[in-house]
């Protein structure tokens, strides 16, 4: 069944148009046009109030502004209703209109009405990928808050000669928003396929952000280390000392990569709890190549 007041009103209006109490055959063309207008109005509502991501308004209480601040989980209802409406309208509803009310019309007219209806109904499905993207983006952004702790790694390993032995605490939190989302009661309105699609898309987006942020940390560590090395070598040359002792130490970048390697292995194990194989995610493979030691580069296993 439908979940939203607006979707329910659309279906009721469309049904009223072609109900035996209201419909008059001599006004068929007008009722057909009215039906298309009703679908168009609902479509505009979806577009302007739910999908208008970049709506700009100086009035903070405008509808668009409020729509943007809605929890993305609410889009589950919209996705569910759009799917239901498309199935219902292109099935039983269209059959009722064509086979019962307009059965005396020529096949050419029936074909035109059928195509007109189907085009209007299917245009609703154009919103599904946009709604899905908004949900993926909204939920994965919640994980970015925990990923920001990555920035603290550099400072930690620049101050110590200790080698990392276990993963960082932030790793356990990265997928928590995904878990919260999947545990939400609204998810019951998603089909198994759509739920799975969202799960994989969110995991891919989070991993992609993880890769971006880890790359920034490693690149910055390399740059800093390279600058420090040049400074040290300059100082040693001036003092006439050998640089051998310095070169034999494990660098800060190595330590950071060692920790990140432990982190992404734990992250990969956490992904597996959701039924996601980390090695199937392109960004995870890039992340692995970024931080894995030479002898572990070839195969992703943890």
């Amino acid at each position: 069944t439908l979940t939203l007041k607006q979707s329910f009103a659309l279906l009721e209006s469309l049904r009223t148009c072609w109900s035996e109490e209201v419909f008059i055959f001599t006004c068929s063309d007008k009722f057909f046009r009215l039906s298309l207008q009703l679908l168009s109005r609902y479509s505009t509502w979806l577009s302007s109030h739910l999908v208008a991501k970049n709506a700009c308004s100086s009035d903070s209480s405008s509808n668009s502004e409020r729509a943007i601040n809605k929890p993305v989980e609410d889009f589950i209802y919209v996705m569910h209703d759009v799917g239901f409406l498309v199935a219902e309208l292109s099935g039983d509803y269209l059959e009722h209109v064509l086979c019962r009310l307009l059965e005396s019309c020529s096949s050419e007219v029936l074909d035109l009405v059928r195509r007109g209806f189907l085009q209007a109904i299917r245009s609703l499905t154009d919103y599904l990928p946009i709604l899905k993207d908004r949900m993926v983006e909204g939920i994965s952004e919640r994980s970015v808050e925990d990923l920001k702790q990555l920035k603290g790694i550099s400072a930690t390993y620049r101050m110590t000669s200790k080698l990392p032995v276990r993963h960082s605490p932030y790793v356990s939190a990265i997928l928590r928003p995904l878990k919260t989302f999947l545990d939400d009661e609204r998810v019951a309105y998603l089909s198994k396929e759509l739920k799975n699609e969202l799960l994989h898309s969110i995991a891919e987006r989070i991993t992609s952000r993880y890769h971006e942020m880890a790359s920034d940390v490693v690149n910055l560590a390399r740059k800093t280390e390279s600058s420090l090395l040049r400074l040290r070598q300059g100082a040693q040359r001036r003092a006439g000392a050998s640089s051998d002792a310095m070169d034999s130490n494990i660098s800060d970048t190595d330590k950071i990569c060692m920790l990140l390697f432990l982190d992404i292995q734990e992250y990969g194990r956490n992904l597996a709890i959701f039924g996601i194989q980390a090695s199937h995610i392109t960004a995870f493979r890039s992340l692995w190549q970024l931080v894995a030691p030479e002898d572990r580069q070839a195969q992703i296993s943890f």
């Binding site: 069944t1 439908l2 979940t3 939203l4 007041k5 607006q6 329910f8 009103a9 659309l10 009721e12 209006s13 009223t16 148009c17 209201v22 008059i24 001599t26 006004c27 007008k30 009722f31 009215l34 207008q37 009703l38 109005r41 609902y42 509502w45 109030h49 739910l50 509808n63 668009s64 409020r66 729509a67 809605k70 609410d74 209802y77 919209v78």
Partner: peptide
């Protein structure tokens, strides 16, 4: 008069939908 009849029906049917769509909030049935 069929024209008047349809006009009234139009207002009734489209009006009912429009009043629902005027609400930007996601409202459960």
């Amino acid at each position: 008069n069929i024209g008047v009849y349809f006009s009234l029906r139009f207002q009734e049917i489209a009006g009912a939908l429009d009043s629902s769509l005027a609400d930007a909030n996601i409202t459960l049935v």
